Structure formats: C-alpha cells, structure tokens
Amino acid sequence: MSEVTLTIGGRDYAVSCADGEEAHVARLGAAIDRKFQQLGRNVSTKDAQNMLFAALLLADELHEARKEGEALRSQVEEAGAERETLAAQVAEARRAVEAARVEAARVEAAGTQPAAAPPADAAPTLFDDPELGPALERFADLLETCADKLEGKGPST
C-alpha cells in the first residue's frame, strides 16, 4: 500500500491507495480541490460539509457525463442499424449490377448472332438497339462504383 497526501481546501489529508495508483488518486484529489474552491465564500467551517458539497458537484458532473454517454451510445446503435440497412441496399444494388451485366452480355451476344426476323407486324423492342449492351455495361459499372462508395471503399477494379 502507498500513501498520498491530498491538499483540499488548504488542508492536507493522508490517503492510502494501492501501489501504482498514487498519480490517479492525486488527480482525483485535485478535482475535489477544484470543486472545493468553486464553493468560494460559501465555504463553511465544517470540513465534512464542504467535502460533501464538493463531492455533490463532482457527482452531478458524473451524472451528466453518463447521460451524454447514453445518448451517444443510442446514436451509435442507430448508426449501426442504418449501416445494416445500407449494407442490404448495397447488396441488392450489387445483385442488380450483376443481373445488368448478365443481361448486357446476353444482349451483346444476341446482337452479334444472326437473329430470326421478327414478324412484319411486331413493334421494335428495346433489345433491338445495338447500343444497349454497352450502355448496360456502363450503367452496371456506375452502380458498382456507387455501391463501393456507400460501403466506404474506393472504386472496384
């Protein structure tokens, strides 16, 4: 056991503590002394009462710090839930990108092979456009880049 001398309100107090805890106890004593000094002219002649008031001030600060900590913990939990939602959206976007790539490859492959002639009365379809495959591929790359940014990564290679 070690002993530390704390000066609070101009008086010295000997306090025992575990070895290695001297600096910590001294910092706590200094915090109590600062609160004690905040009492200013309201200081009574009773040391115990003055210590009580200083301890109440410190307990109030601790209470407020804990409330702030709880509020921050709640915000962190909300952010975690939002991150999970965003991760699900990113996963869905990645699936859509992959589906778009597959479709782009199918359309591009269909564009290079001779296709059966559509019936004369058939309306033109979107897949008749030879620029659709490359456009879908560019769109898929753009979606992939957006998904990477949402996950906090750089662009994929």
Rank of each mutant, 00 (worst) to 15 (best):
P124I: 10
P118V: 15
E77G: 09
K67I: 10
A96C: 07
R101E: 10
R138A: 15
A93N: 09
A65T: 06
L132Q: 11
A104D: 05
S44K: 02
L62Y: 01
A87G: 05
K153Q: 10
A81S: 15
T157V: 12
D47S: 11
S44D: 06
V4C: 07
R94H: 08
R73E: 10
L57Q: 04
A79K: 13
A116Y: 03
V43H: 06
C17F: 07
E144G: 12
R138E: 05
D141G: 05
V76H: 08
A30I: 07
E22H: 03
S74I: 11
F127A: 15
G9V: 09
L150A: 15
E22R: 11
A65M: 02
K149N: 13
L150F: 10
D33M: 02
P114Y: 11
D60W: 02
A30S: 03
G29Y: 00
A104M: 08
G29V: 05
T45L: 04
T112I: 15
G20D: 12
L57H: 07
A147N: 00
R66M: 03
S16N: 11
A26S: 12
A26D: 10
A96N: 11
C17V: 15
G40L: 09
L136A: 05
A93F: 00
E61L: 04
D148W: 02
A23C: 01
A109Q: 09
A96L: 11
L6A: 11
V15D: 01
R66T: 08
A79T: 05
K149Y: 06
T145D: 15
A88G: 10
T5K: 13
N42C: 06
E21A: 12
S44P: 02
R138T: 14
R94M: 08
A71P: 00
R95P: 01
A88V: 05
E151A: 13
N50K: 01
K149H: 13
L72P: 03
A88D: 10
A65V: 00
D19C: 10
A71K: 08
F139T: 13
E98V: 15
L58M: 06
R34W: 02
G20A: 09
G152I: 00
E61S: 11
K46I: 07
Y13T: 08
E68G: 10
L58H: 05
L136H: 01
R11L: 07
E82F: 06
A105F: 04
A115F: 03
P124H: 07
A30L: 06
